[in-house]
Write a protein that binds this DNA or RNA. Structure first.
Lengths: 215, 215
DNA sequence: TCGCTTCCTGACCATATGGTCAATAGGAAG
DNA sequence: CTTCCTATTGACCATATGGTCAGGAAGCGA
């Protein structure tokens, strides 16, 4: 392939590239709009404008608003589950939970919109992802509970109810995304700096690890 | 109308009773609908049906949907602030934070809808209650931070960043309301029992109090 | 160039929804 | 009873929005 040909292909895009790129554009815009306005408050027109595409084009890639929403939620869910790997293959709670907190705080920082969409979905009774809660999330949770139980049995941490520990981990880490606006307001209106994010992560880690008697 | 007449009507007024009662009916229905559907997804018709009144009647008491929503959010905010009293007049973190956790867990249990509406409002950038965040909540927060600082100075707890401690308290307690559906799903589909709520409260208290070195 | 497929989009439609209004009922004061 | 104010409500309207569609543009293999 000649150089000019390659460039023109990148510019105008191959067919599959076009599809991928436009879907990505739409999903990014949708994530933001759904997070800021909720499912009911979001409009296809606004998402289209934000993605720089005509509205009818959205419906070409995503037949209905709900289809688009479902994809957004699924994307988040996958990112969310990936943080699980930090948990596994850890010798004890200090490494395992420490790494998990760091991973989840990182997600809160990098995907605040996604976290909000997820939160709203659950708050509304999980109309779209109920099956995920009952299968994937339940399995995931049971697995981690077993790990925590083992740590307790091995005397690596105090006998805390693993379930409530997990809820606390989710709550505290996701709070920095979901309530980011409130935190920013209480931070004199400024977003958290790198240093403040580090402090937040360290505070959470320290309180929880000490709280479960792992330090 | 004479002055006495007006007073007697206000005092004895069965009319004002009607107003009060209907406003309460509407606010209760609205809180639930806003929590379950979000502001954009909620419809005046649904709120009206749930309150057992014709839609036009809602607009008689609350001119616009936003007026109604604002009242709902304000109600929650007041309940929310009342939990502050648990914090004050405490000798140290064990009593103060312990009582605060209990109060907030109680609110999560008794007012799950309100908590969700508040969460959604903040997640959407607090379009309606931004001024409250910047005034009342900011002042409240500064006050508690001062209290926590004193406890630290008095050696009653470890030198934790008070701000992140507060965020953790808010996050963990409100999580049981906002993510109640997820928790219920992970609890084999059953709502938490009295005993489970007590366990949850104790777990949260214990982890945090131990985590900040107050035990 | 030709034919096939994918992609694009302005115009359009059916419906849902927030909000209005005029007419009416009903209790209380005089 | 009359008057006045509050409360009630069915009918109605303007608008916004999700979704459709037909026609055309553009990529691509042969």
């Amino acid at each position: 392939m000649t150089e000019t040909a390659r460039i023109s292909r990148i510019r105008s895009g191959r067919r599959t590239d076009i599809r991928q790129q436009n879907e990505r554009l739409i999903l990014e815009a949708a994530e933001k709009v759904f997070a800021e306005a909720g499912f009911g408050g979001a409009t296809m027109q606004l998402i289209a404008d934000m993605a720089g595409l005509p509205k009818a084009n959205l419906h070409y890639y995503f037949p209905t608003k709900e289809d688009l929403y479902r994809r957004v939620v699924q994307n988040i869910f996958e990112i969310w589950l990936d943080a699980a790997s930090s948990f596994d293959a850890a010798a004890g709670p200090v490494e395992g939970i420490g790494a998990y907190v760091e991973a989840k705080m990182d997600i809160s920082r990098r995907h605040p919109h996604g976290s909000k969409v997820w939160a709203a979905e659950v708050m509304h009774g999980a109309p779209v992802i109920q099956d995920y809660l009952e299968t994937t999330l339940r399995d995931w949770t049971e697995g981690r509970i077993a790990v925590i139980r083992r740590w307790i049995d091995d005397g690596k941490m105090a006998p805390i109810d693993p379930r409530h520990l997990l809820y606390m981990l989710w709550a505290t880490t996701q709070h920095y995304a979901d309530f980011g606006h409130q935190i920013e307001t209480l931070n004199a209106g400024h977003p958290l700096t790198d240093a403040q994010w580090r402090e937040a992560t360290e505070s959470v880690k320290q309180i929880i690890l000490r709280g479960i008697g792992a330090l």
